[in-house]
Nucleic acid binder design. Structure first.
Lengths: 224, 224
DNA sequence: GCCTGAATGGCACATCGTGCCAAAAAGTCT
DNA sequence: AGACTTTTTGGCACGATGTGCCATTCAGGC
């Protein structure tokens, strides 16, 4: 007897469980609010630095109370995570949605390249912010957490594509290699003055990093 | 005029600057204190979890005041960093001290394997603690920071070995690949019930991860 | 012994992050 | 429309975090 569950057999969120698209209307509203807060936080962090910015200032700038801010983000520095994670989120989504008959490595490289070449307007904004925010040492923790989360999601996505008996260490290595490739590419791009497209762009750097880091993985020779 | 520095032109530590061994006596004492605190913190974290342990409890268990604790560690969770970083520290040190005529890749693999097979008694302890501490989600941040620092130190060490004109991106990739290999190997070992030596040990897993992740790097074909 | 600089401890203080509860908002149903 | 339920929000209190400041203690060198 773990939980008391008398009347409603399913304690899930609310009424109007959507049969159609995955994200609930409320969830989309919440995601939109998260982005607004992230935008305000990024401006403050870029201007004064994360150290000198209080959580209350971010909340006020976002038009919400301090208490509500901490319902959207568990830590002050996490407020910019939606911007830092924008690329990674899109990347894993593209990989998951790619044709399942495509070899894993092909799918990884293509979705990475596509996610690193911002076509969307907010994606361009996120990239610009990333470059600024990476300079703040106080945000290093958030940057690392974003990639740890990304690696975990990617690991699950890769595992779903592989046959059941696949070595888990191989899957972990593939996820770690691919995530590290994206991270190093973005860090290198942020340090350089290269533009968001063309030579030295995240897309080019990412392709090269991905190729070199994933070349030696055994995973590709066993499943395709 | 950034700082006021009138009388002493060099603000370095103390008297008795040692001409011989690198670490100052005071620094060694400090390092020893750090380890004692880390030991006490690890026991508390493993028993009650990092969430339910206050910084003051760690300080009291270490026989120091709360204020002094924060002079040794900037955050509560960082208190166990010396244990989590023990392997990585030794690894970079072994790599740096290895014969300079040894090819970079050889030196990397050998020092990694050696640092992952604990011969020292405290190294065995650190490994045992690592397995326990990795279960605490509250310590994930410290774990990630430890490896970010390790990657940075390794990057510098690799750069020192390479000829001046070497592509910085290649060096970054090598450092990232090697650090990720160690991290994945330790995470996999911690999840499994494998012993510290023999089959499934960190040394064996590390060798395999290192081989697969660094196989595709261009760096080896240009410098040796 | 004295003297000097570093290490320590105590205190105050701003900020962080959370539990709790009441008010407001949003959605459902008749 | 109104009554009802569920979710979200804001305000408040409070323990915990992390730091600046200053007096005291400690560990040498003289």
């Amino acid at each position: 007897m773990l939980h008391r569950r008398d009347v409603p057999p399913i304690p899930s969120s609310a009424y109007a469980e959507p049969v159609t698209g995955r994200p609930t209307l409320n969830q989309r509203r919440r995601e939109s609010t998260r982005l607004e807060i992230a935008q305000a936080a990024a401006e403050l962090f870029a201007a004064r630095g994360a150290e000198a910015t209080t959580a209350e200032e971010i909340a006020t700038a976002s038009g919400i109370s301090l208490r509500t801010f901490y319902r959207y983000f568990s830590e002050k520095e996490d407020a910019v995570a939606p911007l830092l994670a924008a690329g990674g989120e899109r990347w894993v989504r593209l990989f998951t949605e790619s044709a399942s008959d495509l070899p894993v490595r092909e799918a990884l490289e293509r979705s990475a390249a596509e996610s690193l070449s911002p076509s969307d307007a907010p994606a361009v904004e996120a990239l610009r912010w990333t470059r600024d925010l990476l300079r703040d040492p106080r945000l290093a923790t958030a940057w690392q957490r974003v990639h740890a989360d990304s690696e975990e999601r990617l690991r699950v996505a890769i595992a779903d594509r592989c046959p059941p008996g696949t070595d888990l260490l191989e899957i972990r290595l593939a996820a770690a290699a691919a995530t590290a490739a994206i991270r190093v590419a973005l860090e290198q791009w942020a340090r350089s003055g290269a533009p968001a497209t063309g030579p030295g762009s995240p897309r080019e750097l990412g392709a090269r990093c991905m190729r070199e880091l994933t070349a030696g993985l055994d995973l590709w020779t066993r499943v395709n």
